[in-house]
Design a protein around this nucleic acid. Structure first.
Lengths: 319, 319
DNA sequence: TATAAATATCGAAACGTTTCTATTTTTTGG
DNA sequence: CCAAAAAATAGAAACGTTTCGATATTTATA
């Protein structure tokens, strides 16, 4: 593996001269710099990241730890983060599972953005003793060493629910995602708040896990057990809503005639269902950008206003 | 940021003793090791990855460079790679866009798996001068410094096409993805080979870009221009097939009565279409595992048999 | 009890950069 | 033509680890 020494030797000059030349330091005359660069290229030399990171005490990288690569939600979030980091000369690395732990502990980046509920809060606080900034997206941690950025789920779901009630639905059911996960809890809170405020009683609650399959199962069990069907399903996310829609339609139900249904997230698929799914639109790309902006500010110990990302209610045809 | 020095000071011992203790070297008695470890934990010390990487001349990381985080295909591939790497004590980092270039140049990993056509072959070869192993998945590079692992697109598409012909379809059209991309070229080759072999003439060829939207557009243009409709669409991937299916169905066509259609990849959605889409199933999780196994072998300069991943024809209901 | 062997600990070099300071070379102008 | 200033180059320390070789301490053996 060629090192800066090899380049220096090939150029007949010192290591420091090579370093300055490759980093475009103005103390090296242009002509020499050009010569050195071309020799470096010929050799195929690129500076070792490890050595540079060690010396400079930074990496110009931001780590994004996610829980899995599937699902329609992370996609745009990552693109948004990457877009903004790129723009500021930073590199993004994405990890999942146990890899995330390792990368965090090793301080493989200058900062981390975390949306992976499998990374224990306790471990995060341990890491935060020696590593900052960390922004978490998937929970609230009340500790000064970690920053939270969340979606204002509660407010959005509150408004969506109010709109549902206003339309006159009476037998309103809630479809949970994974129970004690931040997104589910806060969305459910917003739902409840609106229901209480309007003196409505909840018709039923179902338990899913945020996947389309769990929506399918919920619908199937309603049909098989001939349980009473609500006139409105308020779902904790789009995927479950789509699972329920498709399954119920396949069994002869018509939406929104027989019942209404809503989702949350406005994933791409929500624009292809029939009827078009009413939901809450989260602009994940923009959210990603603002997360990235914030972490860059935190890096420089600048003040940030870490406000919650707003959701926009999209009332389409499904209720 | 606490360093090993701080731990040594707190323990009242030397740096080397701390290092040995934390790395479970048997020359440190268990009781001392325990003491040192607990002090380290208290301080919140984790060894610096950069320093370790520099000294050990490895990172225990593998970089996976992908072209984007969307789409249904990468998901399982990444899980497969991660699963296998994890099992062998390696960490996976995923990158996209310009970040990939930087990470490759800096040698931020011990090896790289690349499936991003935006990374120029020329640059890859430049990087390969000083960095190995590199496995590319999305093209063939005939150069000893880079390894190829590809899907046997040609064979699978050849067989699929033969099955189509055998069913008696006569007016067979091909729907291209991005034209000169490996997957498209090789699939098209297989298609052509079967057609020639059976003395069939191609009814028509359409140009898409692997997205569902491009499928929609193709269908829309056929309808609007009232062009003759083939009795079979052989598509370069599932997403385009689904776009065509839905659009044509929305305009009153019935599948497979009016025409047949096939995809490639067997994405999850393919099991939810009506009719069920006939396609070629690629087990991306398994493929990911075998890619990871191979890169680990290459790391140790072991011989690998870099064979092509086979596809399995899934004839369902769409032709 | 003296000494060898085994065990525990330490010091220092090295990894490949960046960057501060020092030195050499060139240019300027009186 | 010389001294001083400016420009170009070089040397060396430091970043935080790992690990080799050396030293100090304990234990075993004669």
């Amino acid at each position: 593996m060629a090192s800066i020494k090899d380049v220096a030797k090939a150029c007949g000059c010192s290591i420091s001269t090579v370093s300055y030349a490759l980093n475009n330091d103005k103390r090296i005359p242009e002509v020499t710099a050009k010569r050195i660069k071309s020799i470096a290229e010929e050799i195929g030399y690129f500076p070792s990241g490890a050595a540079r990171n060690l010396k400079k005490r930074n990496t110009k990288r931001i780590l994004v730890a996610i829980s899995n690569f599937g699902g329609p939600v992370y996609h745009e979030l990552l693109e948004g983060i990457h877009y903004q980091l790129q723009k500021n000369g930073y590199t993004m690395i994405v990890s999942t599972g146990a890899s995330s732990d390792t990368l965090l502990k090793e301080r493989s980046a200058d900062g981390a953005i975390i949306t992976d509920i499998n990374i224990a809060t306790e471990m995060l606080l341990q890491i935060a003793k020696n590593f900052r900034p960390i922004i978490v997206l998937d929970r609230r941690i009340e500790d000064e060493s970690v920053y939270n950025m969340t979606i204002n789920n509660q407010k959005a779901m509150y408004e969506l629910t109010k709109a549902v009630i206003k339309k006159g639905y009476k037998k309103i059911a809630y479809v949970h995602g994974v129970r004690d996960v931040f997104d589910n809890v806060t969305r459910y809170d917003g739902f409840n708040q609106a229901m209480k405020e309007q003196d409505m009683t909840v018709f039923n609650e179902y338990s899913g896990n945020f996947t389309k399959e769990s929506g399918v199962e919920i619908a199937l069990s309603i049909i098989q057990e001939q349980s009473p069907v609500p006139d409105m399903f308020i779902c904790s996310n789009d995927e479950m809503a789509i699972g329920i829609m498709e399954t119920m339609q396949n069994h002869g139900y018509s939406i929104p005639n027989d019942f209404g249904i809503s989702g949350f997230d406005d994933i791409e698929l929500a624009q292809y269902t029939t009827p078009l799914l009413s939901t809450v639109k989260i602009n994940h790309f923009e959210w990603g950008k603002s997360i990235a902006k914030n972490i860059l500010k935190l890096l420089n110990f600048e003040k940030t206003d870490i406000s919650q990302q707003k959701g926009e209610i999209m009332i389409r045809d499904s209720f």
